[in-house]
Structure formats: C-alpha cells, structure tokens
Amino acid sequence: MDITTIIHSLQAKFPGIVVGASADQLIITKEVVKPVFEFLKNGPAAFTSLHSITAVDRKDTVEVVYHVHSFAHRVMLTVKVILGNDQLEVPSLTLLWGAADWLEREVFDLFGVRFEGHPDLRRILNPDSWTAHPLRKDFQMDGIVPRPVK
C-alpha cells in the first residue's frame, strides 16, 4: 500500500480532505480529526505510531501538524489541521495513542492550542505559573530582551 492509495481510500471515506503541498501531506478540518485518525490507525493503512505533533503559527491561523508512521507499509504521512486564531481547539488523540499525551501538552504549552478531551492538559516545559505561549509569533519577551552587543 503506497501513499497515494492510502490517500485515495481516505478521500473516498472522508470527502473534503485536501492533499497539501506534497503528496504525503493532507489537510483536514478539525471536525473529522477523530474519525480520520481512528481510520488511519485502525484501518488498513495501520499508522500505528504517532511520530510527532507540532504547530506552526501563521499569524491569522495556527496549523497543527501531525506526523504519523506506519510500520506495516513503511510510510509516513503528514496531516495538518488549520485552526482559526479565535478557536484554538482540536480534539485530543490521547485515546488512540499514548504518545499524544505529552506531545499535546507540549503544543498546548508552546502554542496555546487546547486539546479537547485531554485528561491532563498542563504545561510541560514552561512553569505552570506562566501565561504566555512562547512559540506564538505574537509572543512578547516581557522585558527579556537580549543584551545589546557592546
């Protein structure tokens, strides 16, 4: 099963899935996040491993980027969910993958994306008392500016 057949089977099941910039990249809406990943993991493609979750702040939108990997077919798939800045919420994948727990906490910590249904959505790298999300493009250093070079 190569990447195009996987994508075709996915598109047949979930119309509205767009292929992204490259052939192994999908863009989905957040409504179908759960069923799509459930299909990817438990379906014939067998993407058993959630490799990473990250996000890209595009200023007016935030892309949540998932990398999933299938040991059976030796392919890696990139799945993107584009969120509006006013609605930084996406369903959690913790029920599908144990790895999602910490990865989602990291994205929440650094980008402020809330994962609905995550059992323990706390900051992971930054102190709990923090309020900012450092990897957002609008992150202000709050006076922590690099010293000018003399």
Binding site: H51, S52, V56, D57, H67, G98, A99, D101, W102, L135
Partner: peptide
C-alpha cells in the same frame, strides 16, 4: 528517531523549526 521539521517562508530564517526528540517519547 530524531526528527527535524523545518518550515520556510521565503526568507533566510526558518519560519518554524521543530525538533522531534527521541528521548521525549522514550521518557513519556
């Protein structure tokens, strides 16, 4: 598996760079 995810926006600096570190998953 160490992963690097680099996103560019046409400029000389990476727009976003993500490090997927193996120990992070191994510790979780």
């Amino acid at each position: 598996e160490l992963g690097f995810y680099i996103v560019g926006d046409g400029g000389p600096l990476p727009y976003r760079l993500k490090v997927r570190s193996p120990s992070f998953a191994n510790l979780s």
